[in-house]
Design a protein around this nucleic acid. Structure first.
Lengths: 192, 192
DNA sequence: ACTGTAGCGGAGGTGATCCTCCGCTTCAAC
DNA sequence: GTTGAAGCGGAGGATCACCTCCGCTACAGT
């Protein structure tokens, strides 16, 4: 029911350098990039990312020839984590499982942004990530639909975009974001 | 019930130059800016805006000393238009009036963006615009609440941010955006 | 028609970011 | 320990957007 093997993680892993120092730099770059993309969106400065990671700009470009490579790698990491979460919540009641997963979705900033800004992108990695995510989360949604908890006249894609839009919006505080998200999810829940 | 006088439009109008050619340029700049901000967000290139308007970059800077001035002017225009719409829908049934207004909201791209990205801005014009908009739309929402059509445990601010987030998200087609928006609005409607 | 001035445009200086290139460093295999 | 190659960093050229400045243009009031 939950997730299947994720080719995505393999693609990314295969690019990680073998030498110790190089691998460390690679990881530092990914972490710095996640931070920077989360703060400034997909246009974050690459020099800034290299600085945060404590490596030279040349090292960044050796590992990630283009901005897109870097962004996709961070994105793929978050998607993998989200897919794993889907397995964790699978044991809960249908509606509970779905909302737990969606609330975790809120934590994955880059993924959220990618869905809002670049989801219509057709590159190989984006497609693979989308598939993984839909394979992981889609069943949670369908289960809620079958249980009569979620309305039948919408798709999982509708739901993801709705949540992505709301959570990517600037709120003065997290409590308000949660409140608004909960209200929107009430619209998803079947009237009872 | 509906809108009050809008000081905002006066502020903006007072800046419009008197000479014919200058006024034409001013209008062309605003139109070009609206387009560019809608397409590329608040970071749109100013040189590009001048080019679209068919004027020199110097003319842009004479009319709008900073990017912020320009953005605020476009924003103020859209807010004014939205306030006028609020008067138009006032005659409809409470829930109908509210959703009509919100659906018009979707058309005002820059306003939408401003709410999503810059609503926490405290500058004078942004505050004035926010007030105007809340004075225009807020009563529609309260009327729906009083009529028992909209839930009482949320604020107008919650509602605006929710709609702004969803409508500013990238959708493959408008039909899907409408569908998702309608679902979220179902969450706003009181269970009956 | 004349004329003073508001307004015009865009060349060019400034600063930020992108990305390449290559001499130096460090790892790890032997 | 030696050594070859993988990896490193950051200087610097290219590009682009920002914004100022000033000689020229054309409007509007008389």
């Amino acid at each position: 029911m939950a997730a299947q093997p994720f080719p995505v993680s393999e693609i990314v892993a295969s690019r990680r350098p073998h030498r110790r120092d190089a691998a460390r730099n690679y990881d530092a770059l990914l972490a710095a990039a996640r931070e920077a993309f989360a703060e400034n969106g997909a246009e974050a400065s690459l020099e800034d990312i290299a600085r945060r990671a404590g490596v030279g700009i040349g090292t960044l470009y050796r590992n990630f020839p283009t901005r897109r490579h870097l962004f996709e790698s961070v994105y793929a990491d978050e998607v993998n984590a989200l897919c794993r979460v889907a397995e964790d919540v699978a044991a809960q009641e249908p509606w509970q499982a779905l909302t737990s997963w969606l609330r975790r979705f809120v934590d994955y900033t880059v993924t959220k942004r990618a869905i809002r800004e670049a989801l219509n992108d057709e590159s190989e990695i984006f497609l693979a990530c989308r598939d993984s995510m839909y394979q992981a989360g889609g069943p949670l949604f369908e289960r809620a639909q079958v249980a009569g908890e979620a309305r039948g006249d919408m798709t999982f894609d509708d739901l993801l975009r709705m949540v992505a839009g709301i959570t990517a919006t600037n709120f003065p505080d997290d409590a308000q974001r949660d409140r608004v998200l909960a209200i929107a999810l009430d619209g998803v829940r079947t009237a009872r």
